[in-house]
Amino acid sequence: MSTPATVHRRLKPSPFLPDLAEIVRKDRLTAAETLYQLRLVDGTELGHVPGQFVEVGVFGVGEAPFSISSSPSRGEVFELCIRRVGDVTGALERLGLGARVTVRGPFGRGFPLDAMRGRNVLVIAGGLGIVPLRSLIINLLDERADFGDFTILYGCKNPTDMLFKDEITRWAARSDVDIRITADIADPSWKGNVGPVTTLFRRLTIDPRNTVPVMVGPPVMFRHVVKQVLACGIPEDRIVLSLERRMKCGVGECGHCQINGVYVCQDGPVFTYAELKRLEEAMLR
């Protein structure tokens, strides 16, 4: 049968047809979070940009979106840091090395690396927000000469929740990056700053003309940190943040991730504050 006049395109494969990936390494980071190293079975590289995400599926259980935590500059394996909260994350934890999962993506708009070149970068991570930011941080460190001052602020609830401890210690040893860490609630072993991530701003000098703040964290963190960086005089269109919403398709069809008229899976998850501030459902106010 011939094709109706309105339909010209040739049959394209499904946006839901995934690639296969193999779990090549699993490192338990905390009681709830595990770092997974995956490799696409067909031997290709994922080809992502920091800030993008993939849909990972466990056969029979389903799919869920996860930020890519490794840097694109690190070859054919890629890393996901996953907190066990439900079906897919629970099933992943039960899978052993060599097990196969499905991967779709990478999806979405990543961090604006090019716009950041030549500028000071201020990374602000709250909780699991460090996961996508780690991809950016490693990438920046690999191309360190292209960027100005590099500052990282990282807040976690308890000192025991801190992710990537060894790596952070290694970064902190470098003279070309300034890392400051805080815990909301201290335990006896904790010698660092106590309080929300905003308290780290007190002893920080920020050059508003040349700094790009990049933040990922829970909604409450956004509300407070955006206020802080705006107060420093940084323009709205230079404030970068990444949002989390429920996602099912990852390709702008299913409607779950919508914030007003915007699809987080396609138009984001990385946005500038200027793009979001008028969107009531972004919950930044």
Binding site: F59, V61, A91, R94, L95, G96, G98, A99, R100, V101
Partner: peptide
């Protein structure tokens, strides 16, 4: 256990 579906 490294099958793709983990079963009780």
């Amino acid at each position: 256990m490294n099958g793709p579906i983990s079963v009780l």
